[in-house]
Design a protein around this nucleic acid. Structure first.
Lengths: 185, 185
DNA sequence: GTGTACATGTAAAGTGTTACATGATTTC
DNA sequence: GAAATCATGTAACACTTTACATGTACAC
């Protein structure tokens, strides 16, 4: 799903400005499963407007750029419906943390526990932030997604706490550990 | 983490060809947390070779392009160690599924249950595939990562099974939900 | 006085995917 | 006879990030 469709979907839930969309994606309930920045959101909104899928009304502000409030149009809803008929692509999860754990084993074993401990700390913060979000009023769908996020974060946290010890005996690997190295296929 | 570093890390675990790296990333234990295709892997290997971080030896094949087997160099390991000293960036999860569920609520409510049912089916398959992977011999780190993946997939599956009903008002639960596969839960 | 929140946007640079190009061998 | 596996690689295109550009207002 490209940023254009993401913006269209967010606007299907209610009007918003580019700034607000960025906040939702960066910190709000969209932050688990999407990411985008101003550099992609603003151009997307412009394109959607030109395509007639959203309308834009400017609200004057004092000493600031006008607020541009976007609304989805009927054509926009139809386009989104068509888009949702296509089966969603597979999830794409990219975790530098998991990669680092794997690679640290071969190259810098003493680093693994630090990596895991930092991660545990981050998970706790993230869970607290999500639970705070849940205190607010939100739609059934948003709540479903945020609770899904909490469940996933909790599982990750528990897994790390439970399995952290397996690296306790980690020892440096000799310079050339090839031969019949066991790479998972 | 860019594809160049990903390739370097994979090669730190043992020698491999571009083709093999692609398989690991597309289907193997790297597939949860990274993705890359030939179009990015081959150029990355070329760049790493030019930078002296890996070496390449060609093994002649019959009626096929030579196999190019890459090995990490000492300089490559040092570069990787440096890279691992930097704290890993945040996870970036992109899920068209979660986005679709959220947007479908506003635009096409009857679609949600289908989306969830398909997803449940996919999770079962994925879990089965991962558990098959675990039967094989693999390093401590690989096992850690694959088991992490299994835990996450299971949580997602259970969450969807448990919370699927909240969208019932959008569409009654069919008596015999389709896609009810006989795979391990 | 420093940082954050508000509020928009552009341009260059980098990164990654998709489709193409080639071709034998094995499995269904 | 079709599709998958093995095996490499390029080029065009799409997408995203980062840095730039321009301010005010408020809290600490």
């Amino acid at each position: 799903m490209d940023i254009r469709t993401l913006c269209l979907g967010i606007l299907s839930l209610g009007e918003a400005t580019g700034y607000e969309i960025n906040k939702m994606v960066a910190e709000g309930s969209f932050s688990f499963f999407s990411q985008a920045s101003f550099g992609s959101i603003y151009p997307s909104l412009t394109k959607l407007t030109n395509a007639g899928l959203v309308t834009c009304r400017a609200e004057p502000q004092q000493k600031r750029p006008d607020k541009k409030i976007y609304n989805i149009t009927k054509a926009g809803r139809e386009t989104l419906t068509q888009e949702l008929k296509r089966s969603p692509g597979p999830d794409r999860n990219r975790s530098d943390f998991l990669a680092a754990v794997l690679f640290a084993e071969a190259v810098s074993p003493t680093r693994i526990q630090d990596l895991i401990d930092d991660r545990i700390y981050e998970h706790r913060h993230k869970i607290a932030a999500l639970e705070a979000l849940l205190e607010e009023d939100m739609s059934v769908g948003s709540r479903f997604v945020v609770e899904y996020g909490v469940a996933m974060q909790r599982t990750a946290l528990e897994y790390l706490q439970k399995h952290r010890h397996i690296f306790d005996s980690a020892k440096p690997v000799p310079d050339a550990p090839k031969g019949e190295a066991k790479l998972a296929t």
